[in-house]
Design a binder for these strands. Structure first.
Lengths: 342, 342
DNA sequence: ACTCGTTCTGGGAGCGCTCCCAGAACATGC
DNA sequence: GCATGTTCTGGGAGCGCTCCCAGAACGAGT
């Protein structure tokens, strides 16, 4: 009763037989190598089309030692990631860029320390050719753990722990904050405060630093003028309220993220202050789904997640190919998108 | 110069040799099969530990015809997904549930029709054992395309097109909307409107239907009392403004999503109406990052994305194992989380 | 002693592919 | 004619694993 099922997937051998050539020639034709006669190539491609052939990845990667897959690792506690459209943009861009290069994207979340052994074991297991990692938290032990592996890894943003020697693609957070603060100064604001991010975040540290630098360059006071939010809207609102108590006469705010800027606007409205007439506000991220829905539309430091991800993938592909690109740390420029809030 | 590199990954043969048994016995010991003496099993496990052995997945799946990977396919245009924390919750839950079962999660986005061939080709290619698909849009051609494949597929939510014969795990949208409207009626509201979702969305259709049913059961008017938002906050605000013009004396609103409910609250505030004193508001989704930040906290129809995803995975695993679970269409119950907005 | 039955073991085959290498086919030079 | 390429082809080997099957080892019953 062993009648041959038509449901069997055709193999390379089937394609070769159908095309009247050998397995080797079929393989060469499909992999677009040289040393294949046009006649043979045509025949093989036609056969593959007719039979609906698609190569068995398992067999291929068994010999090439390549899986054609890349892991995207997001290391942030659940609550944070859920509210952050940034990660979704990153995921989409990564998927798209990888798919265009014929690679698959394997997503992994790391919620807590317990997930780390599983993650490293997985990466060591040879399931993927490399990994893109976002671990924005300073205390995160993941980067250190991954450093020991032989798997190529590229980090998005500056990881807080032991970033030395790692491949990273970061934004110019210092420069962006500097840009924002300078813009406020040019708008003749003289009483500038900041709602900064949590200082266990390298990105938040850099943004605070840039703000401080710009103000110091113009001889303006920085002490006691920074309040930390937690990168969320409610956190931004609370921080702004505290700042207003301390500096009732402030005339400009640099918020280290767009959601916090939204909170800032709320707090200002609650205090009866007009934007930008009484107080100018700048955000950071230039998140399209936030800046345009706010009233007034928010001036914000613009960064390009797509560019970051594509950069990371380029570097990773070099590493996978065996090259060691320099420099290890790349910093992408940011710009300022000026709107009605300043 | 062919000195053996210590960087070489150990194979099963190495483990067997180290343990002093054969390849077959080593395989049996590691795969926890019977017919292995305790002595041999111990030796093999110790050897695997000592050598840091992890099996080559490619080689394994070449013979087992299983990849141990499942695709998660999200079919929604970019703009929608970015604002929707629902998808991120789904992704995390799916990752976690699959990882616990030893399976990998491969994420794919389908933005437009052009992505469909790539997606089907990929699924046909045998890269994954099955797929979880979210395609909430009614016109989406993806479900029909996937129907023709031999790969097990389970849908989240009722796909608009040709849902007959597909495996689906949906929420009781009709029941949830009915629950919400009935609750408003019990709160002695007599002038109830709804901000419904886009009617090319099966879920939105169901929610409108449930609202209509509840009102009809109590002999209340439904004509001219539904305005469509696009599931976003701004859409909800606009729809509410239109409803207020038409029914200035309305005293309750059922919004078919939480973001739209947020817009409803904004519009009501702009019209100087108090919630819940003048107007009661119910949302849908019970999105934790929305309902608690609104003022007042929002009464909303509660659903459990985690339960949905786990259900989908259970069914998918059955299908992969070769079973055909019945019924094909599962509907999960929803409840009402009552807060201060009603 | 011998047959059974059960538990355990090792080797062979083979999954579908890529790589290597020997050699065929063809053109080009003297 | 023969030596010398260059282009093209097919078969063999082998990647690391699982499965099958023959047979060893061991006990228990006659």
């Amino acid at each position: 009763m062993a009648s041959s099922m038509s449901a069997e997937r055709p193999t390379l051998e089937d394609v070769a037989a159908y095309a009247g050539v050998s397995r080797s020639t079929a393989s060469r034709a499909l992999n677009e190598e040289s040393y294949v006669s046009p006649r043979a190539r045509e025949a093989v491609l036609a056969a593959a089309r007719d039979l609906g052939y698609s190569p068995n990845q398992a067999a291929r990667s068994l010999v090439t030692k390549r899986t054609g897959a890349v892991a995207l690792i997001l290391s942030e506690p659940e609550s944070k990631v859920l509210n952050d459209p940034y990660f979704l943009m990153v995921m989409r861009e990564a998927f798209r860029a990888l798919a265009d290069g014929g690679a698959q994207m394997l997503v992994m979340f790391v919620d807590n320390r317990d997930d780390i052994p599983r993650t490293t074991r997985f990466l060591e297991g040879g399931h993927v050719d490399g990994a893109l990692v976002f671990a924005p938290h300073a205390g995160d032990p993941l980067p250190t753990a991954l450093k020991l592996l032989r798997v190529p890894v590229v980090f998005g943003g500056r990881p807080g722990t032991a970033s030395r020697g790692l491949y990273t693609v970061d934004y110019d957070n210092v420069g962006g904050a500097h840009l924002a603060a300078t813009h406020l100064i040019q708008r003749h604001r003289r009483n500038i405060v900041t709602v900064c991010g949590p200082q266990d975040h390298p990105a938040a540290q850099d943004r605070l630093l840039g703000w401080q630098k710009a103000l110091a360059e113009h001889g303006m006071p920085i002490d006691d003028r920074a309040e930390s939010g937690d990168f969320t809207q409610t956190g931004g609102e609370a921080a702004m309220t505290r700042l207003l108590e301390r500096h009732p006469d402030l005339d400009a705010v640099f918020a280290a993220s767009d959601p916090m800027a939204a909170g800032v606007l709320q707090a200002l409205r609650a205090h009866g202050l007009r934007v930008p007439d009484d107080v100018a506000v700048v955000g950071f991220d230039d998140n399209p789904s936030i800046v345009h829905t706010l009233k007034p539309p928010l001036t914000s430091v613009h960064q390009e997640p797509a560019a970051q991800v594509r950069h990371m993938i380029t570097i990773l592909q070099c590493l996978i190919a065996g090259d060691a690109p320099t420099p290890k740390r790349q910093v992408l420029p940011v710009s300022l998108a000026i709107r009605d809030s300043t």
